[in-house]
Design a binder for these strands. Structure first.
Lengths: 190, 190, 190, 190
DNA sequence: TGATAAACGAGACGGTACGTCGAGTCTTCGT
DNA sequence: ACGAAGACTCGACGTACCGTCTCGTTTATCA
């Protein structure tokens, strides 16, 4: 067992904390996640948690970012329709089904209450995510499938907006049919 | 001065509580809203708040529902494009600018943490709201501007989804240009 | 069922309240007696209790006084020693064993915290009780068994003081041997 | 400033709490002593009070025990009568006049409602106190002033019982004349 | 023989204190 | 130097009773 060292933080403690927060969120929900509980479950002193993370949201954010590394790189089939359909389906599955998606929804929820969380979520997640969202469109413009002057921001909002809306607001299912239809309508505009 | 009676609750207390919660949310944010604070600001005993509302979210919900009564009835100009543009602009203003919109965002945030809030939000707000969202489309089908077999659910998601997405996720501005473009793209599909 | 009348209170309600308070004291102790609980157990409105008794102590006091009516009249055998022994034994049994004794101990306890209770206890209980305590001595002076100028106050304190002391302070048993010895020592002084 | 450490509690906090409870009892009476009030007056968090004392009675008990350390050691004049008169006078003054006496009366009152308080009062106060009460008698038997087989328990009850009785029950004054007479009557028996 | 006023049940009200939980800070000791 | 442990202040939680009040109902008395 590791108990302190003179050179930098304990990676062991960091991992334990991040795992603990994931577990707590899944088992007890956002309200059930407390700094006290995280420390206890991680077998770590409360102060150790506070030393590296200012709040439980920051712990969740780190856990989320860690988990996101390997996610959601959209495929490249050389065909805009096919790429978009696959990407939106992936996105829907991520948001509704995966553990990381649950963490994201929790963070998005908290972002409504706390502008700092909102800001952090945008810099650390949305930036990369929108880059991934734009990728199929960008490749299509390069291939000439889309006009070069297309407004990528607007196009992405049109495509993913309804998906997030269903997930975060209506709670409706986000079926493959739904995402495919979104793509079809989008393609019909150009 | 009224202080309780056999036949039900004090309307005075109810109003004071709902006003207090609105004020607190706007001035101090969601975390700054506490049952204790609501009672204090309303000049009401804590027990009186607990007697009628199980949690601060329920107080917010009631305040929100109360405020929503007079809102967001979409206009009828006899023209689909004009109606939709006006309605989306109204919606954007409600979500981003109004006090009620702030309450809605807080509730939508909390809905991510608590399924009961999500359910309540859907039954008490989304139902009516989507009825309002559909109204211009429904009138257009009656006028023959839109095909009779149009999928209203899908159409509404397409139209309002990107608006909610910007408000709740990206934090981007929801300008008149943005909503107008959404309407233009939608009309181009039919 | 009785529900109020123009002139005078409901005897039914009074009885129910006094019984309720006795029951609560025995079952749940002094702290378990509350105005709320008395009303509930008596099947009576809280206001009805407050209308007739200012506090739970007053209810207890009334219940106690009611119960005391038929108690502790010292016997008259025409012999000081015999009378005193019997009276002290009765007193000891009352204080340690009877339900009324439990109420008395509770009231005596509360009297330490509240001068008003102390005053009420003295006027409503101690007055009569000390008259009863003095009775054997008074009769003995009339018979010439005791000098006419004896200080009755002091004599009573000497006799009953140690009994109350054991009951209220040390918690020691108050056996027949103990009370008999008190009498013997007292008689030895004269 | 000290704020918690691994090895035990803050002595500063302990002292502040004990002083606060003494002050509150004297100024506002037993009912005016609350855990909330103790914490506030001591400038200490409520949780800190609860961490070390389960109830206000326990705080009072500790304060009382602390204060009792330096009290009531009976004098030794080598003469039973003189020793007893002095000791009973001291006892009377302690019970009726001193701040500690007020705390004792409050605890004795509470002991009537709560057996645990009664038990604690006996072990922590009565044990030592009766040892002090017996001391003059014990010395007298050694000197031969009293028979060696005297029942000390009984003798102490006879001597102090009437004093406690007046203090706790009748509320009568406990004058020097009264205590002297008690001693005189006691000596007359032997 | 009503009307009417007191006492009743019910229970909401503004309060105070309860005892608990978690937040975030600080100090000590062990590794 | 860092981590474990845990005491500290602080603020909110949700509950129990307090004592006051208003409401609508019941019932003995008196006009």
């Amino acid at each position: 067992m590791h108990h302190g060292n003179r050179h930098g933080r304990s990676e062991q403690a960091r991992q334990a904390v991040l795992q603990a927060v994931d577990g707590l969120l899944v088992e007890r929900g956002f309200a059930g996640v407390t700094m006290e509980g995280i420390a206890a479950r991680a077998g770590v002193a409360k102060q150790t948690v506070y030393r590296w993370w200012p709040s439980k949201v920051d712990v969740l954010m780190d856990a989320f970012i860690d988990d996101m590394e390997q996610h959601l790189t959209p495929p490249d089939h050389g065909d805009l329709g096919r790429d978009l359909r696959a990407h939106l389906a992936d996105l829907a599955e991520f948001l509704t089904t995966s553990d990381s998606g649950a963490v994201f929804r929790a963070l998005a929820g908290q972002a409504q209450h706390d502008p700092a969380v909102a800001a952090r979520l945008r810099t650390d997640y949305l930036g990369q995510q929108r880059a991934r969202d734009e990728l199929p469109l960008r490749r299509a413009t390069e291939r000439g499938e889309l006009p070069a002057d297309i407004d990528l921001e607007f196009a992405v909002d049109q495509l993913v907006g309804p998906v997030y809306y269903r997930v975060l607001v209506t709670g409706g299912s986000v079926s493959r049919g739904f995402t495919d239809e979104l793509v079809a309508r989008f393609l019909a505009q150009h």
